[in-house]
Design a protein around this nucleic acid. Sequence first.
DNA 1: ATCCTATTCAAACAGGCGTTTGAATGCAAG
DNA 2: CTTGCATTCAAACGCCTGTTTGAATAGGAT
Lengths: 211, 211
Amino acid sequence: MDDKPIERLLAAGLVVFAERGFREATVRDICARAGTNISAIRYYFTSKEMLYREVLAYSFREADRKYPQAAFSDESLPASDRLKIFIRHLLMRLLDESDLGFHARLMAREIAEPTEALHFIIDTVMKPRFLILRELIPQLVGDTLDHTDIDRVIHCIIGQCLVFRHSKPMIERLCPEVISSPEAIDRTADMIIRFSLGGLRALDPSPGSLL
Amino acid sequence: MDDKPIERLLAAGLVVFAERGFREATVRDICARAGTNISAIRYYFTSKEMLYREVLAYSFREADRKYPQAAFSDESLPASDRLKIFIRHLLMRLLDESDLGFHARLMAREIAEPTEALHFIIDTVMKPRFLILRELIPQLVGDTLDHTDIDRVIHCIIGQCLVFRHSKPMIERLCPEVISSPEAIDRTADMIIRFSLGGLRALDPSPGSLL
DNA sequence: ATCCTATTCAAACAGGCGTTTGAATGCAAG
DNA sequence: CTTGCATTCAAACGCCTGTTTGAATAGGAT
């Protein structure tokens, strides 16, 4: 447990908001975890909603600290390698059960049921990655697809990663083995990569494809 | 509006539960939509939770009535055709904005944040479809994958469909065109099918593949 | 008309929520 | 020690929730 109440509230808020969502999270629960009095939220953040915004910012800071500038934005690497890195990176973050996992869960929540903070999140973390994929994918499928189809392909790829996070309850009932261990998650990442590269190859009509 | 209060409450409950989730939905809102008094829920369903269960059952009934026994379980068709039907079917249901869309949203909610009803839903609607895919996929990729990898592939495929439902808020901000019209959704389904068949081909080492 | 049952209704209830209060506490500076 | 300020605390506030109540209403059977 950190020393200052502000840090403790941010850390506790991250956990509770990630697990229960904004509305279902209670300030009493957050404060209990943080070991503070209820009114500490008002004192330091003025309201639950302001705390939530600060938790989001805190979450981004922590995530960027642990996963700094992903190598997938390194333009000197081959496009297919960059895509592989992106997929593995994304899946790991999504299924990470440490502090980092809360960040992923928090964002998954915002995507599915946006608060007013969604625009900020999209522009800050989603859009930059999205734009990189927008220039990456055409390098892998040639010029046959228009920009809308490129966006479709991008979602096909990230959807394969997201499903393992947000359908987790179903997965754990139907086939828990696919993500039950770090090795299993690793194999899942491999599978998504093989599957996606195969999918991209099917979209590229040129015979001597880069893939 | 239907005639009987029970029907009206079920229909209103479907809409409100699908849009707000179980906890955030209020009985006052549901009753207002249904045009009944608040205590009608107690009178006909004894509690909000019992109403929710009945809404789930009602939702399944309605969905099966509109999308009866999908052709994709027709074993006389080629496996690849059955997969195509499955993908198109699933995406259409997920993005359908009519009554049927509420059914899909309701289930998407249960998958992401299960109530006690999840087990029932999984065994009733998910598992049967999942088991069909479990026998379908091996026909398309040969015998090279163990059953866990088959389950991974299944999730890669359904993940591509699910992402367009549950990342909708993000899609509508980053690239709304991909699902902005029935034609666009149709093109998205085509893309998922091409992408998935390509992915499956990449997993099948045999030269003269069925794909 | 009278009774009985089914249904509707407005009002209130208890509990949990985020927020607010005002006093208690700690602690460094004068 | 005293002052002043930042911080903590228990308690209460007002609001909204699901639920409950008991009376009002309706409509068919006798």
